[in-house]
Design a binder for these strands. Structure first.
Lengths: 104, 104
DNA sequence: CTGACATTTCAAGAGGAATTGAATTGTGAA
DNA sequence: TTCACAATTCAATTCCTCTTGAAATGTCAG
């Protein structure tokens, strides 16, 4: 992960619709949510939800799996963790002041 | 911190110039860096560096203090930590899979 | 095969973000 | 005061992102 890639990933998080998508998917847990359910959950049209889902998918924050007529999305925690690690460790050089960010 | 604000803050991180600025400021430590030094460090014109610094400053990730003819910038770790906490705790509901992100 | 449903893709337009170089502001030295 | 320096601000341009609604794709039931 370099600055270029990290910037793209942060860009995928820089939208409140997309943050709501992630939140909804976290709430849904391992079962995930169908695209239509996500659209309804965040109050967006199917087309708009699909646009944001493809951004999140390209970033690797979510993955889709076809299930009958639906596409079921799940969140990828590892990918989110990798971005956090970049900012906290690589970028911020493991600065002690940031160690407390995880509430540990 | 809500999704709207968090999205804005992630937007401030969604640029490789600005990530390099943060990295440079972290390396500089408490002493901080003058705007001109930052511009040189990231290989940008003074005007371009200033543009990105103002974005980071509005987001609260950096703060400036005048020192003679220079403006000295420092990174705000608390602000970065607050955003991380939002994603990890608020948005991601403290999901166990993300607990490992700080390498603790 | 036909029809209905779930979702994505596409084209067009609106709005915001980034880059450039010139002009401006603020600060200090002589 | 005058000059030089440090940095920001501005205007113009370009580029990218987002939104919308219509059209296309893929999937299944009858």
């Amino acid at each position: 992960m370099n600055e270029q890639e990290a910037a793209t990933l942060f860009g995928a998080l820089s939208n409140d619709d997309r943050l709501r998508v992630i939140r909804a998917l976290v709430r849904a847990g391992p079962a995930g949510l169908a695209a239509g359910e996500i659209a309804e959950a965040i109050g967006a049209s199917p087309s708009r939800a699909s646009f944001h889902l493809s951004t999140l998918s390209e970033a690797g924050f979510v993955h889709a799996e076809r299930q009958a007529r639906s596409l079921r999305y799940r969140v990828d925690f590892d990918r989110i963790g990798a971005l956090m690690r970049f900012l906290l460790e690589e970028c911020c050089a493991g600065h002690p002041d940031l160690r407390s960010c995880c509430g540990s």
